[in-house]
Design a protein around this nucleic acid. Sequence first.
RNA 1: UCCUCGGUAGCUCAAUGGUAGAGCAUUCGGCUGUUAACCGAAGGGUUCCAGGUUCGAGUCCUGGCCGAGGAG
Length: 377
Amino acid sequence: MSSTFQFELLARDAATGARLGRIHTPHGVIETPAFMPVGTGGTVKAVTQHHLEEIGAQIILGNTYHLYLRPGHELIQRAGGLHRFISWPHPILTDSGGFQVMSLKGLQRITEDGVEFRSHLDGSSHFFSPERVVDVQLALGADICMILDECVPYPASLESTRRAVALTGRWARRAKDRYRIAAEEAGAELPSALYGIVQGGIDESLRRESAEEMREIGFAGYALGGLSVGEAKTATYDIVEYTASRLPEDQPRYLMGVGTPQDLVECVARGIDQFDCVMPTRNARNACVFTSEGRLTIKGARYAADERPLDPACGCAVCHRYARAYIRHLFSTGEMLAATLATFHNLFFYLDTMRKIRQAIAAGNFADFLSSARAGS
RNA sequence: UCCUCGGUAGCUCAAUGGUAGAGCAUUCGGCUGUUAACCGAAGGGUUCCAGGUUCGAGUCCUGGCCGAGGAG
């Protein structure tokens, strides 16, 4: 196994843009297409690291902004890095805080130099530059780091989207420079890879421009940001296909923040290798579970005496053991086990979907898989 | 037996004599690089009963019923 980052493209689907691959990192291999559970503050909410291993998670996310505020990246570095601190010896990707630039609207001010944040916890002021965000992520020791980007909300004017693309491009160069200097100082290849992020809303020419600029700067992988923020599904899919086709064949493509199980299948077909989304975990805590028959709101009265598992077609440990009636009872009474069981199941469902996708690509029948997924939705 | 306080939505309680509300609970939605065990909507009332005063009573008066506390 390679000790540094490497993407291995194993197969390309003949009929679609789907790809089968492996990402090698210092903490292990990620089979792609991959779904990455979100663990913003050093935990995938409601489940343990042991659960994640049992579910088959190969990589999880952390968030630079949240971990920087609490407990602080220096503390984590002194504790031996994020992997050791949270006891997750497998790959970790840290998001840059670029999304928080958008979602903490009102608590931040964007300048050429970076982003001035007010902490949502205590109102204290902080400054994130593209360089600092790289430093923080290197201190955390993430296997994959993301550049600081400006993620515009939807709808956005063409002009503000254009500005965000330009600013993200300039920040990307600075992040890359900082990364290169850190590697020179270390005198070795860094254990953390750096991904660029393509912005551009749903405008093809802006996406093309952003993709070209990211390629020119050169990153270990390329992310598509600012999608599934409210635009029509067809627009998302079209832009994903358009953008993915303009990114290097031999490097991973990561669609940030997406999506529903159907989104995953559709975007794999358009050439995406990595996904992350809070949907399986957040929705689980709010009693929404994903099944082979679609979503169900398990706190509903109709499940009060339902002795079936969440998904009769699911092979997860929760579905093996617990009835809908019991899980609905746990939600009704506010028991925290409700969140744990629902999260475990939802993540298993997502990761199992990805396993099936990879199997289908390997077997050469992904197109069939795609059309039956469409028929079933 | 007397005195005091109280009785309003399933629960806990609001409402200068002027359209009876809130929180919780219930039911139903929503959640897409987590400020989210969150957010939204809906349903739900003979204001204990019977009289009275008043243009108008949950509110004031009389009587009763029920509950809590106190006195004897």
